[in-house]
Design a binder for these strands. Structure first.
Lengths: 342, 342
DNA sequence: GTGAAAGCGCTAACAT
DNA sequence: ATGTTAGCGCTTTCAC
């Protein structure tokens, strides 16, 4: 049977109240006594019982605020599903989630919502946001106010976020390069359609891809790299223009959204049989294009797990089951027609 | 704030004890009263609080017995890791796991250990065992004695197991066929090295593979299908014999263990560059062969998740948070050199 | 057949 | 500075 606060109290010859004070490093305890109690607790291998803790502080629910740039971006549906599952499982433990969704990557929108988060004084905060200085400053302010901050899906360069849960974008790119190498014998003539040159994740996917090809000693040439700005119309036009100009392109590497547009250009030009197309993530549009056989591989990052794990880990931390705090890098998942869901 | 037993009691004008009796369908309650209380509970949307339950029944820990044919089979290390993680997370809730490991697939060993499981009268039991009639009967006996039985990794054809957590072996095979199709242009001349014709999982992997090739309209021929009996020496000899006899084999499909032996034969004959090798699972030997570039793809099934989810779901059920009971089919994960761990 | 009370481990408010 | 107590939601025991 596990050690309880009672056991420690008896062993130390003090009351449970005192033990509680010591364990929470609250003051108002004689130093001698505190030391002795702590020593006994350590020695007996005390770990507080979660059920007991939860029940005791049930009137003050644990409030967690989330922020996602998810409006209009179906990728985040799965992250939210993960949030919701964690919330359901933790609802008996008094956890309440507030999810704020904003549209895309507008700096001011992010700053404004982060201000709101700060004002709400959450116990914990879980965000996907922009990795730029003003945002970092705003985040750090929240952290300093006593709220635990964690990042999901996209990390920010802040010493104050407790941990990150998300993919390794570089590895995703490298994995794409490995697959291309396996399924093509001839020279690879690649068109890269990226989302934005300003998005670190997109850039990392390109870097991993290129460096992977180089490590393989692959015979490749990048014909062009264009931005879709995550927009189908732009994706369509730029892809089409490139394909028309370069008859010999045999691979399209799509690092972000705009997939539907790019693939439509391929179809309109009747080139789908002479092209290997790589994309990222498993959203309705990529899924159906994979099933159609237009996209060969789509490389995924366990978005639901990201949401779920981020909240679970945050909860665990807030209940101070102090395990070592490490980032969680989700797996790089290769999906083809056969192993994509449904 | 969530509805509690107290709320119901007050609303119904009875004591908490009575409400508890009704909710547990224990007798000793006037039928009229029972009906009314139940109606009120339903109406108010009562769901019992996990923390409260756990704490109340803390003197009788929840005992779960596990059985795995894992001795000498590193695959199960991850399943066990999943068990252990779940056990750690649930230890505050009074969960205790007993893991029994046996060597391989000897019928009598399985029967003997299942007898032991029965004698222990666990609250729940989680097994990987043989899908044959004597075992099924033994399992059903446990289930009828009031213990909840679930299967992990390999299902059994028993109406009494509550749910199954594990892979879809057929889909794994199909995924392999899809990959082969993608990375080979010429006629596929395949050697199948399976574990045992008696193992349903291995057979399903073959069936999925073949049917997948057929659906693709692939140009293929299965040169031979041999058993390794999960043994490296046998795997070596039979693979070598086949390869020597058939110079034109260009693909080896390894459905089970014996991988090291088979690959050694390939190496000894200097054929690794002219062969695509597919294997299953991410164990030390497949992992190192993938990294070496000998195995191209290894197709995995989230073994750690299997162990973790099986215990978590079992726990949830035993605490009668009655969600709908469905099997959990783990994902089919493609690993290549780039995205395999480490 | 039903109510009342104790207790699981912990925290917080109150008392000394 | 320390001890005592009530109470979180639930189960169980005991009393009526």
């Amino acid at each position: 049977m596990a050690v309880t606060i009672r056991d420690i109290a008896k062993e130390a010859g003090v009351s449970r109240g005192t033990v509680d004070r010591v364990l929470h490093k609250r003051k108002g305890v004689n130093e001698e006594v505190a030391k002795r109690v702590q020593a006994i607790a350590d020695e007996m291998g005390f770990t507080p019982n979660l059920a007991g803790k939860v029940l005791a502080r049930r009137k003050q629910p644990l409030r967690i605020g989330c922020l996602l740039p998810s409006i209009g971006n179906p990728f985040f549906d799965d992250v939210i599903a993960g949030f919701r599952q964690a919330e359901r499982e933790l609802s008996d433990f008094g956890v309440i989630l507030d999810i704020t969704q904003i549209k895309s990557f507008d700096l001011n929108a992010h700053l404004k919502e982060i201000k709101h988060l700060e004002a709400k004084h959450y116990d914990g905060v879980c965000v996907t946001t922009l990795d730029v200085q003003p945002v970092i400053d705003a985040i750090d302010r929240i952290a300093e106010s006593g709220t635990t901050v964690v990042t999901v899906n996209t990390d920010i360069d802040s010493s104050h976020r407790l941990f990150y849960v998300g993919p390794d974008y570089y590895l995703e790119g490298k994995t794409a390069s490995g697959l291309l190498q396996l399924c093509s014998k001839t020279q690879k003539r690649v068109l890269i359609v990226t989302g934005s040159f300003n998005m670190k994740g997109h850039q990392e996917r390109i870097r991993g891809f290129i460096e992977g090809l180089q490590e393989h000693g692959a015979d490749y040439v990048v014909i062009d790299t264009v931005e879709s700005l995550d927009d189908d119309t732009i994706g369509y036009e730029r892809t089409r223009a490139c394909l028309e100009q370069h008859e010999d392109i045999n691979c399209i590497y799509l690092t972000a959204a705009g997939v539907q547009g790019a693939c439509q250009a391929v179809k309109d030009l009747g080139r789908q049989d002479s092209l290997r197309i790589f994309s990222f993530d498993d959203v309705p549009i990529t899924r159906s294009l994979v099933k159609e056989g237009v996209i060969t591989f789509t490389i995924c990052q366990q978005p639901k797990r990201q949401g779920y794990d981020a909240i679970q880990k945050l909860f665990t931390h807030l209940m101070n089951q102090q395990d070592p705090i490490v980032d969680t890098i989700t797996q790089t998942i290769i999906k083809i027609r056969e192993n994509i869901e449904e």
